[in-house]
Design a binder for these strands. Structure first.
Length: 434
RNA sequence: GGAGGCGUCGCCUAGUCUGGUCUAUGGCGCCCGCCUGCUAAGCGGGUUUGGGGCUUAAAACCCCAUCGAGGGUUCAAAUCCCUCCGCCUCCGCCA
């Protein structure tokens, strides 16, 4: 949710942001109109409410007098009449207050509904346009070349006894898989490497709930894309597609202390995605699956620090990619391809030899104060005011990384070299075919 | 799954039975000031959060809401009723 005060003062900036995203510009004026209406009817209701309260209070005072007079055994008819009169007036007032309150509530809900539809304001420098309008920021390493015909990750995985798609489908259906033997160990190695790095950098390691309540899912902005989210109707819970959701919900409704610097969490969780919009895409292997594991960085910080923190997250992702020795590029995602909560997003994409292209391995978003405003997460400024924090997230490792690791480090005999950083976790420098 | 207890402004706590001087009590902590060789003690004041108004803006000020959440009854709800959430105790079941 964006700041309504900012919107009132800078409608043109918000319009420009909507335009860059290819989103509805007229929403801005709808929100502003709804805001006017809601404030007018709120004022009306509140002043009438104040009147009702004072009349009602006077009834209380009269009741007190009445009680005292009764106790003394005096004549109470005059006081009784006064009480009846005041009460009658209050009754009338109460009915009108109820009507105005309902109107104010309706207009408030209308306003909030519209405001929530507005996506985050994209930052200066974010390329305008859609999915293909990204800007490549840098290339690290050269695409891997082979003097033999490389196998794809699934063929390699099957030879190594690392991936079993067939039984995955038997047990869970399409887009499910088993990681077996060295496959399971390789994933654990990767995730542990990521977790270790995060801890070294001062992150608090977290293992998070993967089922969350509707408020949390909505607060992070993912319910807007609800067709891609698993829902358990019997319990009204949602399966999270990333631990970002639980980590953002962790401080929901709190005023947190960031006076000592950003709060950084590293979440380890299984992630669940319906992949509803991607039928037929990436159906081979484990590139796009319904369930995978991920280590995710999540940060709460001073909004003034958010852009610098975003760079740091990107640097830490690059550090992980260097450790597993992959060639990749970094892109600055275009406005239209940002999630609704994100103001800027950098993806790192590793080279996948058998596809001859780069595929996303990490994604780091600066959500500025958008999520925090929805979730009610604030900090105290040095002046003592409460303001929404900025939230940011970024990937440190996922199951998908196995695809790039297997393919880029394969050798002619079907074995796969293990990057040095992973060797201590696996106890070997090469994975050999069965 | 069943039975019972509980949820109050950072923490603890009074108030709930019997609706109205509750504008929510007191303590601790914290902040400001006074006093004081220094410290401690003492004294005085302040200390939930959100929204609306006023204001160029902020502060101050006024108003509305806020006693786990949401609804209801009533002129009036922390207090009565309903639903939900969470915590605790016991029983049952279970990996």
């Amino acid at each position: 949710m964006i700041d309504i005060k900012f919107l009132r003062d800078n409608p043109d900036l918000v319009r420009a942001s909507q335009r860059a995203r290819g989103a509805d510009e007229s929403l801005v004026d709808q929100v502003l109109a709804a805001d006017e209406k809601r404030r007018a009817s709120l004022s009306e209701f509140e002043s009438l409410r104040a009147e009702q309260k004072s009349v009602s209070k006077s009834v209380g005072a009269i009741m007190g007098k009445l009680g005292a007079a009764k106790k003394q055994g005096g004549d109470v008819t005059a006081i009784q009449a006064e009480a009846d009169e005041a009460r009658a007036k209050a009754t009338e007032l109460a009915a009108e207050v109820k009507r105005r309150e309902a109107a104010a509530d309706d207009e408030g809900a209308e306003f909030t509904g519209l405001l929530k539809k507005l996506d985050n304001i994209v930052l200066d420098g974010v390329p305008a346009g859609g999915e293909d309008d990204y800007v490549v920021l840098e290339h690290i390493g050269e695409p891997t070349t082979f003097d033999f015909e490389p196998l794809d990750h699934l063929a390699l995985g099957e030879k190594l006894g690392a991936i079993d798609m067939e039984r995955g489908a038997k047990v869970g259906g399409a887009r499910f898989y088993f990681l077996t033997g060295v496959g399971a160990r390789l994933e654990l190695a990767l995730l542990n490497l990521a977790m270790n790095q995060a801890v070294e950098q001062g992150f608090i390691p977290m293992i998070t709930p993967t089922l969350v309540r509707p408020e949390i899912m909505d607060g992070t902005g993912y319910l807007d894309a609800h067709e891609d989210v698993y829902h358990l109707p019997a319990d009204d819970l949602y399966l999270t597609g990333t631990s970002e959701v639980a980590l953002a919900g962790y401080h929901q409704g709190e005023i947190i202390d960031i006076s000592g610097g950003p709060k950084r969490y590293a979440g380890w969780s299984s992630c669940y995605r319906r992949e509803a919009g991607s039928h037929g895409k990436d159906t081979r292997g484990i590139i796009r699956v319904h369930q995978f594991n991920k280590v995710e960085m999540f940060v709460y910080c001073d909004p003034a620090d958010a852009q610098a923190e975003h760079q740091r997250l990107l640097d830490w992702e690059k550090e992980m990619l260097a450790k597993v020795e992959l060639p990749y590029r970094v892109i600055d995602t275009a406005a239209g391809d940002l999630g609704g909560s994100a103001a800027r997003k950098y993806d790192s994409e590793a080279w996948v030899p058998t596809q001859g292209r780069y595929r996303e391995l990490t994604s780091t978003s600066n959500c500025t104060t958008y999520q925090a405003r929805r979730l009610g997460i604030r900090y105290r400024t040095p002046e003592g005011r409460t303001e929404p924090v900025a939230t940011l997230n970024g990937t440190l490792a996922t199951t998908r990384w196995l695809v790039a690791i297997l393919e880029n480090h394969q050798q002619a005999d079907g074995s796969v070299k293990v990057p040095a950083a992973l060797q201590p976790f696996l106890g070997t420098d090469v994975l050999k075919p069965l």
